[in-house]
């Protein structure tokens, strides 16, 4: 396995955005097929955040964050949870899954050899933060770029996040 990434988008940090702002966000950062998936979801706003959160988790699995979400994800599923599969054919495949909670959206991603990513992610999903009630905690330091780095190779000084099983 190349890496694991996790991203948490708290509703309190995006709930205030106007519909036109969310539309602009989608037009700027999502690919047409991703926008089409968002348009078919019950909440366009939440769907846009899901896609971007999955992309951020994928970047963290690659050991990067705060980047420009250029990769394309094929979204599978809808509503409370599903899968996002990197559509670029490569020896290393990226894949994410997400779960919508009451106050946040949690995305978990892996970068792994093609063919193994889904199995690895499913195992992580069953044993990790999605599996039982958890309290996610975030710690921020004073030395970071936007977002928090929760990948397997966090940058020095970057905020970290993890799971605390209750």
């Amino acid at each position: 396995m190349q890496g694991v990434g996790i991203d948490l988008a708290e509703r309190s940090t995006y709930g205030h955005l106007s519909p036109s702002s969310v539309r602009r966000l989608a037009d700027r950062w999502l690919r047409p097929e991703e926008r089409a998936w968002c348009a078919a979801q019950p909440s366009f706003r939440e769907a846009v955040v899901i896609v971007l959160s999955c992309k951020e988790a994928v970047y963290k699995a690659w050991g990067r964050s705060g980047g420009v979400p250029e990769l394309s994800l094929a979204m599978e599923g809808h509503g409370a949870g599903g899968w996002a599969v990197g559509s670029d054919p490569a020896p290393i495949q990226v894949m994410a899954c997400w779960q919508v909670g009451e106050a946040s959206i949690l995305a978990l991603a892996v970068a792994a050899p093609a063919g193994a990513a889904r199995d690895l992610l499913e195992r992580l999903r069953q044993s990790g933060p999605f599996a039982r009630p958890i309290r996610l905690f975030l710690t921020r330091t004073r030395d970071t770029s936007p977002g928090h780095s929760c990948g397997s190779q966090p940058r020095r000084g970057a905020p970290t996040c993890g799971t605390n099983i209750r």
Binding site: A9, S21, R28, E56, G66, P146, G147
Partner: peptide, 22 residues
């Protein structure tokens, strides 16, 4: 800055860029 504001998340950074460009 992103360091001093907890609201400056990775998601809001993208929102900020698209809003500034407009």
């Amino acid at each position: 800055s992103a360091t001093s504001s907890v609201a400056w998340t990775s998601l809001n950074h993208l929102m900020l860029i698209s809003q500034l460009e407009t």
